[in-house]
């Protein structure tokens, strides 16, 4: 999938370059600037995630998030998912492993959903773009929604 993006971006870049050298240069400069803008926070986030995952083992996680952990487990899973921020390509194998080693559907769904939608570590970054109120609104609504999805999926599956 990433390859498609590279091909697409490269083609777009070529077309842009054929149309205007100047504008393409500006575009690349802007691309670099917006990347460098989030780099400090990004590196910080990656280090925090690395440290968290290094300290916690998969067994420890699943003992807290088993099917019998009930709603407390769901809340714990949401908290964990909100704090951690790992890409879906890592999250789903982890979620699947948790599920097979005794994690409950409700807890795992809450974990996956908050993992993707709620970002506590990235709050400062989001504040910068959307201001405090909109950021807190979006994150709390997403958290509430994640809990709802967890309960619904737990009931159906």
């Amino acid at each position: 999938m990433t390859i498609i993006f590279y091909v697409f971006a490269f083609s777009a870049l070529m077309i842009s370059f054929a149309k205007s050298k100047e504008k393409t240069k500006t575009a690349l400069k802007k691309a670099w600037k917006s990347f460098e803008n989030i780099l400090p926070q990004l590196l910080l986030i990656l280090l925090i995630i690395g440290m968290l995952l290094a300290v916690l083992t998969a067994e420890q996680i699943s003992s807290f998030l088993g099917a019998r952990s009930g709603f407390v487990g769901v809340l714990l899973a949401s908290l964990l998912g909100s704090v951690t921020l790992i890409p879906g390509f890592v999250a789903f194998p982890l979620a699947s492993a948790l599920l097979h080693s005794g994690g409950g559907i409700m807890q795992i769904t809450a974990f996956v959903s908050t993992l993707m939608m709620v970002g506590i570590v990235t709050l400062p970054l989001e504040f910068k773009y959307f201001g405090k109120k909109a950021t807190i609104l979006r994150n709390s609504l997403a958290l509430g929604f994640s809990l709802m999805v967890a309960v619904i999926m737990g009931a159906i599956l």
């Binding site: 842009s16 504008k23 500006t26 691309a31 990656l46 440290m51 890409p87």
Partner: peptide, 29 residues
């Protein structure tokens, strides 16, 4: 911890360039 961070960093750096290039182009055009 360092290994996980390094792996995540590589994952991230591999997906980001096209996003930011397209972003820059979108901004300009």
């Amino acid at each position: 911890s360092f290994q996980l961070t390094y792996q995540n960093l590589l994952d991230m750096l591999s997906v980001m360039p096209p996003i930011f290039i397209l972003l820059g182009l979108l901004d300009v055009w």
